[in-house]
Structure formats: structure tokens, C-alpha cells
Nucleic acid binder design. Structure first.
Length: 379
DNA sequence: TCTGGGGTCCTAGGACCC
DNA sequence: TCTGGGGTCCTAGGACCC
């Protein structure tokens, strides 16, 4: 009973921002276009490219200028997060018809535990039904991966795009996962990838070979290495617990300036605007925070972050503002700044805070202090 | 005519407590 | 007299993902 195999779907909306743009502006269908750029337009990057653009080698994170260099007639569509949020909500609402166990992976992807629904219908039929449903109802194409764990489902959905359906069973790991290039492994990015190649590790199958273990451990901790092994061998998490993923871990806003600035007041003005944005969201979602921080990037792209943790949770604007100002005063070194931002973290629902207050005036203390305080009372 | 913005998770050292 | 070990929290930075 406990060891029964689960059926996890990973559903990935293909080129989501582009799909939304095409729903709104159908004439884009035959164009080579990207979503991206920035308000200043000169300094943008590609957020998402449509499949026509991908064929030409235009990809996410590429600068708009480079993309234009490849294809001068490229259409650049500005991002429209309200639109994406609307269709993202449609997407998740649609999935609720099939399961209560849904974990958002991001705005455009979801892990769904389909074990229950699969008792009355074949998983492949369910996948086709969902795929067609999303496309016909909303015009959203997707790829679906079906596997016994979240990681394998994610890897499976990547294998056939757009509008693919791919199954990876546990016994197919060697056949389907091992031959994949190591850069396709979820979690291996542009820093680690070239280092692995240098060690002679070209595929996922290479990664798990005992002979490479020592070399890999020079690149990452043993914990990370072992965790990758568990993922690959199909022994990682198959749990989707909606209760666990309620509130965000952090709220942040940052912006790249139109040009580098070195005046204290001018930079702090930008920081204030970012704080206003983040604070608005904190209040809107009825959260309190315990840690606040600033981020600055210099003209050489070095990022600096400084943070401060209060002794208690708060949503008091003046208190947060004063701390942000102090962090900036203490750490700003007069050098030109390219980007400035703020972050609020260690978040808690305000209503959950009240429970703590009722218990022990908890919010007046750090957890450690509260523990000591409790002990005193017991005495 | 280079290089966005919003996130998550991990690591590593130091402080502090038991 | 020389020097524990486990645990949590804080801070800064980095890798990665969409």
C-alpha cells in the first residue's frame, strides 16, 4: 500500500508568453516574434521566443540586439503580466477538474498527482484529454510528462515539445534518461555544465558512474551529488502536498536604471519605488516579514546584497523603510550603480502571527528567546 | 549596439545556546 | 588545564529556473 507507484503529470505550457500574445493578437501566428525587451527598449533581453524564432536560434535571455542581428524583421512584443496571470489562472483552474493535488512549478507549469483519476481512465488518455482541452478551450499548447516522481515527470515533459506526451517508467530510466546530454538535467546550469564536460561527463548516464564520483565531488557537495543520484534513479519525491506551498518565501523588486547613477538621493529614490511595489504586495497578500534587504549591482555586474533581520515580524512601513535606508547609508560606497532593488523575506501570514501573540507575546522575541522565556515560566 | 526581473534553494562561516 | 559536539539562526553570495 505505502510503496505503491504514483502517477505524476508535469504539465508545461509551451512558449507560454508567446501563446498568450497570439491569443490576444492572432496576426502574430505566422510572424517571427519574441516577448521581451524592457520599458527602455534598448536594454532588453528575450523573455520567450516563438517556435519560428527558435528555429533561427533566437532563445530566452539573449539580448534583443543580438536577436535583431539574427533576424532584423523580428517582431518584439512587450511583456504583459496581467495577461499571463489571467491565463495562468485558467490553466490551474482547468487542472482542478482532474486532481486536488497540484503543485505550481511556476506561472506556466504544474505538477499534478493523477494517481486517483488514473484508476478509472488510462493516464495516456487523460493526458490527451488535458492537452486537447487546454488547447481548444484557451488556445494554450502544452507538453505533458508522466512518471512516478516529480523529477522524472519534469524531465519527461521536456522531451517532446510542443504538444508532446512522454512517459518515463522506472524501468525505462536507463533507456530514456541515461542517453540525454548532461546539460538537459534539471538543476545543471551554465556554470556546472562546462565543468562536467571537462571531466568527461557528457550524459546523465555518465553522471551516475561510480568512476566519476570523486571528480564530481570536487564540483559540488556530497549532499548535492547524492540528491542528483536519487533524482536520476527515480527515488526522489513523489509527494504533492498543496498545504505546504501556500505562501511565498520572499517578495522582491529590482530595476535596471536607464543609465548608471552615483548620486545617493537619486539611487535611494529608485530603491523607494521598489520598496513601494514590494510593500504593496506584502499588504495585499496579508503577510508580515522579518527580514528586509537591498541589492545593488555595479557597472561590472557585481551584485551586492545586504540584509537585516528584525527581532519580530512586521508590516509597519516606517520601520521597514527606516531599515532599508540604514542599510543603504551603511553600505553605499559612491560607486556608480546599474541596478537597485529590495527584498522582503521570512514571510508569515498576518493571521498566523496572531496565534503566536496569544500564546506568549511571541512576536516580541526571537524563537530562541521565546524558548528561554517559556522555561523561566515553568520554573 | 552586450547582458531583465522574479523567484527558490544551497553553502559556508560565525554567533550563540545547551 | 587546552579546546566537546550538536543544533539553530543570521548573513552574504552563488547557482539555477522560468
Amino acid at each position: 500500500m505505502k510503496n505503491s507507484v504514483k502517477i505524476i503529470f508535469h504539465i508545461d505550457l509551451n512558449a507560454f508568453f508567446c501563446s498568450c500574445a497570439m491569443i490576444k493578437e492572432p496576426y502574430l501566428k505566422d510572424k517571427v516574434f519574441v516577448v521581451g525587451g524592457s520599458s527602455t527598449m534598448r536594454r532588453g533581453v528575450v523573455s520567450t521566443s516563438n517556435y519560428n524564432a527558435r528555429k533561427l536560434g533566437i532563445h530566452s535571455a539573449m539580448s534583443i540586439n543580438d536577436a535583431l542581428h539574427i533576424y532584423p524583421k523580428l517582431v518584439i512584443v512587450p511583456t504583459d503580466f496581467k495577461l499571463y496571470k489571467k491565463y495562468s489562472n485558467h490553466f490551474f483552474d482547468y487542472l482542478k477538474k482532474y486532481s486536488d493535488l497540484i503543485l505550481p512549478g511556476s506561472i506556466d507549469e504544474a505538477y499534478v498527482d493523477m494517481t486517483e483519476s488514473s484508476k478509472t481512465k488510462h493516464p495516456l488518455d487523460l493526458a490527451k484529454e488535458i492537452q486537447n482541452g487546454l488547447y481548444e478551450t484557451y488556445g494554450l499548447p502544452c507538453s505533458i510528462g508522466i512518471a512516478p516522481t516529480l523529477f522524472l515527470a519534469k524531465m519527461a515533459s521536456e522531451l517532446k515539445k510542443p504538444m508532446g506526451i512522454t512517459v518515463i517508467r522506472k524501468k525505462e530510466i536507463v533507456q530514456k534518461l541515461f542517453p540525454l546530454p548532461i546539460k538537459d538535467m534539471f538543476g545543471i546550469g551554465k556554470k556546472t555544465y562546462p565543468k562536467l564536460i571537462e571531466l568527461g561527463i557528457l550524459t546523465i548516464g555518465d553522471f551516475i558512474k561510480e568512476e566519476y564520483k570523486k571528480k564530481i565531488l570536487t564540483l559540488m557537495s556530497e549532499a548535492s551529488y547524492l540528491s542528483y543520484l536519487e533524482h536520476i534513479l527515480g527515488r526522489s519525491s513523489d509527494e504533492i502536498n498543496p498545504d505546504k506551498y501556500g505562501i511565498p518565501k520572499s517578495i522582491s523588486n529590482e530595476t535596471t536604471l536607464n543609465y548608471p547613477m552615483d548620486e545617493f538621493d537619486a539611487i535611494f529614490e529608485i530603491i523607494k519605488e521598489q520598496l513601494d511595489e514590494s510593500y504593496r504586495r506584502l499588504i495585499k497578500e496579508e503577510l508580515v516579514c522579518k527580514t528586509v534587504g537591498i541589492r545593488l549591482k555595479d557597472t561590472e555586474f557585481n551584485m551586492m546584497s545586504r540584509s537585516f533581520t528584525f527581532n519580530e515580524y512586521t508590516d509597519d512601513f516606517d520601520k521597514i523603510y527606516d531599515q532599508i535606508l540604514e542599510l543603504f547609508e551603511k553600505n553605499y560606497d559612491q560607486k556608480p550603480v546599474r541596478l537597485a532593488g529590495v527584498s522582503l523575506s521570512q514571510l508569515l501570514l498576518k493571521k498566523d502571527l496572531k496565534i503566536d501573540i496569544n500564546l506568549f507575546n511571541y512576536q516580541e522575541f526571537t524563537k530562541r528567546e521565546a524558548k528561554m522565556y517559556k522555561k523561566e515560566i515553568v520554573k
